[in-house]
Design a protein around this nucleic acid. Structure first.
Length: 880
RNA sequence: GGGCGCAUAGCUCAGCGGUAGAGCACUGGUCUUACAAACCAGGGGUCGUUGGUUCGAACCCAACUGCGCCCA
């Protein structure tokens, strides 16, 4: 028990003090101490040498500059639930924590800080700057790790890793060297996405495309060549015009030269099948140094690559535009062309896709540059095959097509970045043009004229190693032996390509010696959706609908946030979340709290249950339902159906246990004796089991309640409940359903008659038969008193053979009753009509399965009986 | 422009061939001795449109419309 509950318990006048809980669940009072105790006891640490089966999930490493947002909270809730459940099931469970170094983002953050003091990274120099970044990381980085504790993440903190730490850097250098030696890494001059603000190359996936308004300018070159462009300034770098070789209109032009305006240069007209004759005039300008498609055309026709822009996006082509920024140059060049009468058409606004830097939003500039690349073809094929061979399964399966679509058509990966923060490329250049790739245990070449490559590697290059580098690779550590391959990777479908593909490629490559089954980085990929707001809108800071998960945790508790997220988690589907729903989850936690409180006040205890034949119908019913729920929850968990698992538990806990079993239990508990004792054991058993089942999603509240109920150490290390089909009891379920129907009908009647919920009314019950032993319970739930001697019934109703005669001592609202009966009658008549229609249909009788026909027959019989009953009741009303 | 996905109650979503479901919201009534963060009762949907397959379609197929995502 925590400090606060102990303190609060002294205020309780009644109940045994050691069991007393405050009347409401106060998450703020329990969460921090409970988490501290878990860490203290080392529950989340894992043993590399244990005999238990391994269960390892690595955290998709959050960015060192980041803080917890709802997307993290969502993903972490799911991972934590999986790992906690497996731990309870007896697995050696390990959730590996850590962060990546986020090359561009981190360098940007530190550069901004330096800029406040008027210092640039170039003033400091590379070494001093990197040192500054480390300082920043130690002081301000990793805020998210503390926030993960608030969420209750059960990670093995002693194993925390960082992509820039020594071990992981060694892993990076090892794989670089291997790939280099296998000729899977090469250096080449290509068109890359260049960020003119971050001054670095970006890979394809670091570019975000959006439909932006621009302009489409048609320009006449020479006398009769017209080309269209959205980036007019690039015309300065044109080295050809291309047409389709089969385009009849332009056959006469192929092989000729035209004059490029403003420059006076003569450029050739070439024929290339890449040109779409349908688009525009069917003639395109070719700027090989500033467009990826044009670069390819240029290669095919041996055209010169003319770079006309520098790294900052300023024009370098000599002439009047030299030094202008690309966006100043654009209108200036259009104006100059117009003056010469060379503008044939202008379309504004012209909507077209524009690439932006995913880190800073600046419009990306395609740029010819010398970079390092991974030749992905064999790696991507292996990644695709692993899924094709079922060595790795993707959940939900429907996402597989997305996976194949990507890995089967992957472009080479640009891995060099013109940054200082990151793993420096381990390649050295000698004075005589030598190129040496240095492995982790090699001495770099020294001596006059040797220099190391200036660039660093893409952050994803190191993240891709995460499933095994964090376990000690390239060394054959006990951790690696025990926990590789990982069991599951939980991540968003939106980044399936970002790094799942990369982890798969590198995992399979680096661990190929383990054999195809053991080389995979994980055997299952569980994809989740993105968190959206309560209107299904994407959350974003700029849109103003972003929510800080810490605010909601403060207001409603971590369990409430977690339960809301898990309950919304349908595989691969986006999850909307709103404050109302978090509040509802908080209410659920409080419901559990109070149910446990009631149980404890009633003396509930955990112990051996009596055999089924000594239990009551309600006991057997709730136990039957409990074990069915366990089986459901297990099946849903195995299929990553968090939403359904949570719904099952919510429904069982609230609608079945609290609303029915607990209410009904009050009767035997008040009577005392053996019935009370038996009820205490069932209450204790169900609650114990329920709290364990809920623990993976709502760890805090279940910890407090379970330890208070059982007196045991912690639910974190309690065993996971196992479904026992021996408790399945269709008879008890049927009997209980009859009882529920009766109670509900009486309540409806009372409500129709305007009786206050608490108002006790005398009534005579007859025909109880199978549920005769539970008359006291029925009276308690329906607030019906045992009639006195001089009882006179003024109203009556019958439900499945049971007749209830009540003394309403006053006017009976006949109209209300008639309305009710009429409504029920209409529903039954409709059901009858539908069944009859089917049974009259020869085709139905001939072709529908027998079981279906039987069902419809039974429905007709029950509808007829109900109609008879309702009609006779209506007749009795009319006779009055 | 290419590919994929989704359209079910006011909102967010389940259901995916055999009588329309949940949570929240809504309406009426209640402090009934665990819980008003609660309890009891209730209203609400021709399952996007149009065709087709089938004894039977929210569910399968086709087209259309509208949204969303990814890629160019």
């Amino acid at each position: 028990m925590t400090e606060s509950t102990r303190a609060a318990s002294s205020d309780e006048a009644s109940g045994s003090p050691e069991h007393a809980l405050p009347t409401v669940f106060d998450p703020a009072a329990v969460e921090a101490p409970v988490y501290a105790r878990w860490i203290d006891r080392g529950y989340f640490e894992a043993d590399d040498t244990s005999d238990k089966p391994p269960y390892c999930i690595v955290i998709p490493p959050p960015n060192v500059t980041g803080s917890l947002h709802l997307g993290h909270a969502f993903e972490h809730t799911l991972i934590d639930a999986l790992v906690r459940r497996r731990r309870m099931q007896g697995y050696e469970a390990l959730w590996m924590p850590g962060m990546d170094h986020a090359g561009i983002a981190t360098q940007n953050v530190v550069e901004r800080e330096l800029a406040k003091e008027g210092v640039s990274r170039h003033d400091l120099g590379r070494e001093a700057f990197v040192e500054k970044v480390w300082e920043w990381k130690e002081e301000s980085g990793g805020k998210i790790l503390g926030q993960m504790r608030r969420l209750g993440d059960g990670v093995a903190w002693s194993r925390e890793r960082f992509t820039m730490d020594d071990g992981l850097s060694r892993a990076v250098q090892t794989i670089f060297k291997r790939l280099y030696d296998d000729e899977l890494i090469y250096r080449a001059e290509r068109i890359i996405n260049w960020c003119v603000r971050c001054h670095t190359a970006l890979s394809d996936i670091e570019v975000e495309h959006s439909e932006d308004e621009g302009e489409l300018i048609s320009i006449r070159y020479g006398d009769d060549v017209v080309v269209a462009t959205t980036r007019a300034e690039t015309m300065l770098g044109d080295t050809a015009v291309a047409v389709h070789p089969d385009d009849a209109r332009y056959q006469h032009l192929i092989g000729t030269e035209v004059e490029l305006p403003l420059t006076g240069r003569k450029i050739p007209v070439v024929a290339d099948t890449h040109v779409d004759p349908e688009f525009g005039t069917g003639m395109v300008k070719v700027t090989p140094a500033h467009d990826p498609n044009d670069f390819e055309i240029g290669r095919r026709h041996d055209l010169p690559n003319l770079t006309i822009m520098d790294e900052r996006g300023n024009i370098t082509a000599p002439g009047p535009f030299e030094g202008l920024d690309r966006f100043e140059a654009r209108p200036a060049i259009v104006a100059a062309l117009r003056e010469q009468g060379r503008i044939v058409a202008e379309k504004r606004p012209y909507l077209h896709a524009v690439g932006h830097c995913s880190r800073c939003g600046t419009v990306v500039e395609p740029r010819l540059s010398l970079q390092w690349w991974v030749r992905v073809e064999p790696l991507a094929k292996a990644a695709g095959d692993a899924v094709r061979d079922q060595r790795v399964t993707i959940h939900p399966k429907s996402m597989e097509s997305r996976w194949f679509g990507w890995v089967d058509d992957m472009h080479d990966w640009c891995i060099s970045r013109q940054l200082w923060w990151g793993h420096r490329i381990p390649v050295w250049y000698g004075p005589g043009g030598e190129v040496v790739c240095v492995g982790p245990d090699d001495e770099p070449p020294s001596g006059e004229g040797w220099v190391q490559d200036d660039d660093v590697l893409d952050t994803w290059f190191s993240s891709a190693l995460w499933p095994f580098s964090t376990l000690g690779w390239p060394d054959e550590t006990p951790a690696l032996a025990k926990f590789y391959p990982n069991q599951v990777l939980v991540t968003g479908y939106d980044i399936l390509f970002f790094w799942v593909a990369r982890m798969m490629m590198f995992g399979l490559y680096a661990n190929a010696d383990k054999g195809p089954e053991q080389a995979v980085p994980f055997s299952e990929i569980a994809l989740h959706g993105m968190v959206r707001d309560q209107n299904g809108k994407k959350m974003s800071k700029s849109f103003g609908n972003a929510v800080d998960p810490l605010d909601w945790m403060d207001a409603y508790g971590s369990d409430a946030l977690r339960f809301t997220l898990a309950r919304g988690a349908n595989p691969g589907v986006d999850v909307p979340i709103g404050e109302d729903w978090v509040q509802a989850s908080r209410n659920f936690c409080n419901k559990l709290w109070n149910a446990t409180r009631f149980a404890l006040m009633s003396g509930a205890k955990v112990g051996d249950l009596p055999p089924a034949d000594e239990l009551s119908v309600p006991d057997r019913w709730i136990l039957s339902r409990l074990h069915a729920t366990i089986a459901e929850v297990d099946a849903f968990y195995e299929d990553f159906q968090f939403a359904k698992a949570c719904d099952s538990l919510f429904h069982f806990a609230w609608d079945e246990f609290c609303d029915w079993y607990v209410e009904l239990a009050k009767t035997p508990l008040n009577e005392g004796g053996a019935d009370a004792e038996r009820t205490r054991l069932v209450l204790g058993h169900v609650l114990d089991t329920l709290l364990r089942l809920l623990h993976p999603v709502t760890p805090f509240v279940t910890e407090v309640l379970w330890t208070t109920l059982t007196g045991d150490e912690s639910v974190v290390v309690a065993s996971w409940p196992e479904a026992d089909h021996g408790w399945a009891d269709p008879q008890a379920e049927a009997g209980f359903a009859g009882l529920q129907r009766l109670v509900t009908e009486v309540r409806r009647f009372r409500s129709d008659q305007g009786l206050k919920p608490g108002q006790r009314v005398a009534a005579r019950l007859s025909g109880l038969d199978g549920i005769a032993g539970y008359e006291a319970e029925i009276r308690s739930l329906t607030r019906l008193n045992v009639p006195a001697e001089e009882f006179t019934a003024t109203a009556s109703l019958t439900v499945s053979g049971v007749t209830v005669e009540l003394d309403l001592s006053g006017a009976v609202d006949v109209e209300a009753e008639r309305r009710r009966l009429g409504k029920d009658l209409a529903a039954e008549r409709k059901a009858l009509e539908q069944s009859v229609r089917k049974l009259d249909n020869e085709q139905f009788l001939a072709k529908a399965p027998d079981a279906e026909v039987e069902k419809v027959r039974a429905r007709r019989v029950s509808a007829e009986a109900e109609i008879a009953r309702l009609e006779s009741q209506l007749a009795r009303l009319d006779a009055r």
